Computed example of a mutant assay.
Amino acid sequence: MKDKPNVLFIWNKDIRHPDAGGGTIEFFAIMKSLAAKGFDVTQVSGGFSGSKSSEKIEGVSIVRMGKLFTMPFLLWKAQLTHHFLDNFDVIVEGLGYVSLLLPFITRKPVLVVCQHLPKEIFSIEGPHVLGKPLGYVLPPIARFVESAIFPVVYKRVPIFTFSESTKEDLVETGFPRENVLLFRNALAGMTMRNDPLISGNAVPNAAILKRSTPTIVCIGRLRKYKGVQDLIKAMPKIKQEFPRVTLYIVGKGEYEPQLKRLSHSLDLDENIVFSGFVDVSEKFDLISSSNLLVMPSYREGFA
């Protein structure tokens, strides 16, 4: 008999994915911690260009199926044809843009981890990512599934989240309050400071210099729902009051070209620095030396 369970984590991106964000880093930190304690840990995620179909990273077995949006369908197929999920004792699903509706297809114990519900992100990102007509047709359907289907399918499943705001979102959406469990992030900070796998993905950028002029910093993936475009649109008014103000936008993402065009159109080339990825120590130095840290995202799992 096994001393510790064989745990499957399902999350759309793994730690090597080029678009891996804070949620993926946190998820990997949890998996790596369990693997270090002797658990047999596997993650199923979507693949990306040049990715291996499987590999082991710091004790965590990564299995990649298809791409981000095809992974759920391939996992369903693997379960229906080969009973893939039955190989594990416990299944942990990351509830996000796409749910697998696991209680329909397995009797294994299922736990859910939810960073935050997408809600309006569907309509913000849909047209940009999917184009016409899908970008306008699918978001209302996704919102309906999120609000009407998810709470019914997962009504007996424990849901773990990291913030009071997300807990209240889940309860308001229809998930039973007694099933929504709050626990605080406690791993990612240590991991990001010390883990060469994560900090090694960063590219030090010598363009970031400490200045005596007013400085604003914004850190995150450059996606439309992160709201960086709103911060850029506010910069002309800020510039009127503080002509030498500098905004450092730290991070990369698919929305970067649009943000750069917006910055140029507002004549802000001298006031905005797109820093890309920076190493962890440089990021903390930048935050501590800035006058203001701005998080303009439309939705995050904060508070």
Rank of each mutant, 00 (worst) to 15 (best):
S45Y: 07
I91S: 11
P296L: 02
K32D: 12
N12V: 13
A207D: 13
K233F: 05
T42I: 04
K233M: 09
K260R: 14
M71I: 05
Y298M: 02
V113C: 14
P257T: 05
I105D: 07
F88E: 03
L231N: 01
G301P: 09
S288E: 10
Y225G: 07
I10E: 00
L293F: 05
I159S: 00
G22E: 00
L75Y: 11
D195A: 11
G276Q: 12
K32F: 09
S123M: 06
P204A: 14
V217N: 03
H82M: 15
G59N: 00
N205C: 10
E172M: 09
Q258E: 15
P204W: 12
H17V: 08
N179T: 01
F84G: 12
A29V: 01
V63G: 01
D195Y: 11
L293C: 04
S265H: 07
L262T: 03
R16G: 10
N87M: 06
G251V: 03
A303N: 14
L259D: 06
E125K: 05
V98M: 14
P72T: 05
G38Q: 00
D89W: 03
V7T: 03
K226A: 04
S290T: 01
R211F: 11
K32A: 12
F144K: 01
S275P: 11
V90P: 09
Q258K: 15
A35G: 04
V7S: 00
S265F: 05
N291L: 01
Q43V: 08
V228I: 13
Q240C: 09
K56M: 08
V294F: 00
P176D: 04
T70P: 00
I91W: 10
A29R: 07
L8N: 07
G23P: 04
R143H: 03
M295Q: 15
G94E: 14
V157N: 00
E168A: 07
V137W: 06
N194A: 13
V60F: 04
V217G: 00
N271M: 03
V203R: 13
G96N: 12
R143C: 02
T42K: 02
S54Y: 10
G220N: 10
Q240A: 07
G276Y: 08
K210V: 07
K260V: 12
T215A: 09
K56I: 13
D269M: 14
N201Y: 15
K4N: 07
N6T: 06
S33H: 06
F104I: 11
I57Q: 05
L182V: 07
I25E: 09
G23Q: 02
T42H: 03
G38D: 02
I208D: 08
L286E: 06
T42D: 05
F150Q: 10
S33W: 03
Y225F: 11
I249G: 01
G21Q: 08
P72Y: 03
G253H: 01
K119Q: 15
F69D: 12
K237M: 10
L111K: 11
V112T: 10
L138H: 06
P18D: 12
R143S: 05
N87R: 14
T173K: 00
K132L: 09
P118F: 05
G189D: 13
P109V: 04
I57H: 04
Q79G: 10
P103S: 00
P5T: 07
L85E: 02
T81N: 06
G96E: 12
G135C: 08
G96T: 10
F73K: 15
W76C: 10
I159A: 00
A188V: 13
A188R: 11
V157K: 02
I208R: 09
G22F: 01
M190W: 14
V98L: 14
